[in-house]
Amino acid sequence: MLVALRSRRQIAPFAMHRPTTLAEAIELRQAPGTSAFLAGGIDLIDWLKHGHAIDRVIRLDGVPGLADIAAGPNLLRIGAMATHAAIADSAAIRSVLPDLAAVWQGIANPRVRVAGTLGGNVMAGHRDYDGLPALLALGALAELAAAAGTTLVPIAELAGAVPAAFAGGTSSLVAGFGIADPAAQRLHCDRSLRPALTVWLGLTVAAERVTALRLAIGMAYPVPVCVARPLDMDIAKLGRESACLARALAELVPQPVSDGRATASYRRRMVEVVTRRLLIRAGGTA
């Protein structure tokens, strides 16, 4: 007998709500019963196909402003409902943080890019997804909307909470992401070793001097990790110092997992190798 473990025919009936304000969306989330927010839908629909049942699906596409992207000198705000395609094509992002727009051209496939959102990508809690490590490398903030108001928290604080998001374990809503001083941020990534690992290097640069390094690793842990260190170095010297810096950063990362894709020791070694490549690249593209 063939037993289907996963099928669109297994999606259980649910009530659908389309709030028009953040407050209404949060109220629906807090109402008795189980619920989930619907952004682009790709991960939620897949999750429901496994037979998980919820009482309510709360569409977020009726809430104004959630897909907005706004760039200012002090903050780049990307609404949680901004699609990958919108991020890649955004003139605002290109003007202040072109590295992000360039990297996002290659995220997922064209079908997923037009439907998938940055918020959905992060909140899906999938260890292979690129949203969280990219934001970690950029030192981003998450904008959490709750009944009591909106707060900004470091994205690293969100990283530990995302697996609970679908299951109804949170009563707040990630409304967007903020990247401070965006023109000073650089982002480089190497995704060539997927599905073993992805490596994301974020730099803060002021007057051609690197003042901070952040290294985020995806696919090698249950949740992406990020290590950071302050620095005061001419960006042109990054290449020359890449071996030392890469070794020092790789020593800071926790032990990766061993699984069918790669061993922990291979992943750890590759973190150092790829980080060195990224530092060389960053030093040459000041």
Partner: peptide
């Protein structure tokens, strides 16, 4: 419908001119 998870592309249709995975889209959307 092939993979039924927005990967294989067999279910692609154009929605407002953009390619969309129909297997990973609710009809109400």
């Amino acid at each position: 419908v092939g993979c039924d998870q927005a990967v294989c592309g067999a279910c692609t249709v154009l929605v407002d001119g953009r390619p969309v995975a129909a297997c990973a889209t609710f009809a109400f959307m």
